[in-house]
Design a binder for these strands. Sequence first.
DNA 1: GCATACAGTACTATTATAGTACTCTTTACG
DNA 2: CGTAAAGAGTACTATAATAGTACTGTATGC
Lengths: 152, 152
Amino acid sequence: MIRIGKLTDYGILILTHMAQDEVRLFTAQEVSLAVGVPLPTTTKLLKTLVNGNLLDSQRGTKGGYLLARRPDQISMVDVVTALEGPVGLTDCGTAQQPGDCQRSISCAIKTNWQRINQAVHDALAQVTLAEMRLPAVHPIHLPASRADLRRV
Amino acid sequence: MIRIGKLTDYGILILTHMAQDEVRLFTAQEVSLAVGVPLPTTTKLLKTLVNGNLLDSQRGTKGGYLLARRPDQISMVDVVTALEGPVGLTDCGTAQQPGDCQRSISCAIKTNWQRINQAVHDALAQVTLAEMRLPAVHPIHLPASRADLRRV
DNA sequence: GCATACAGTACTATTATAGTACTCTTTACG
DNA sequence: CGTAAAGAGTACTATAATAGTACTGTATGC
């Protein structure tokens, strides 16, 4: 199973919310309330999303956040990359001491991981934020703990 | 970022090794040595792979493990599913108390997660074990800790 | 210049994952 | 038929990544 962390889930929640009104400024507090994620966590995420160039921010009174691009220009790779780190394999080529490798088989596989890598990357690239803000259906219970994670 | 756990990595390592000689019986010890993963962990994985119907096992003296199907009939979804749990989203529809949902927005998104879900699932389904046992190139150092995880 | 809102960093706690140990069952072979 | 080898199953422990929080700093509008 592949897992996406809670924070990434929240992040998508936040972006989807902000995509409802893509030109407006949202304060952190506003977003926190709307999405139901505690303020400290929300601000943390918002900052990260700014660093990932998915959001623009405005400081000072009357400040806030807004989408850096149009929703159809923001894909899930962008979001996932911003929140969970760089997409890509451990770079085998940068190893300092090639002779140290105790599992040469694993390196054979690493090469092949790029295949999987690319496939998943492409899959995520195909889904945009614009597609995510489609019809809400029924408000349904949100389970806690482990089951809460998005299983992909 | 999407992450695949170490154990899944090991699992693929193991299966790839066994795919070298797809009809032979391998003992747990043998596999452990070949792959460089501690015996207890290896046996744990082998058991899980049997339960996932990727391996068949033979008990008793002269027992061991072998692939349950041909390598080209085993995809990465199978492996990932066996080792990390069922592929799929949390089923919103099974919630007992629909009214309890405090974040209706998130449910709107959940519906859309299926999109991502499916995309990643398909991506993994396309890669088979047969394709994974291709040429090993250079034996290279295997980093420890976090960087060790396969970033997808 | 004061209040508001974002920026950055560092710390703590939780929880999932990884790893280990132990007991039980099956089977080959002397 | 009994003993040794090998897998099956379960429960426990430790580690490490993630999630969450708090605090200090900086910009901006009125």
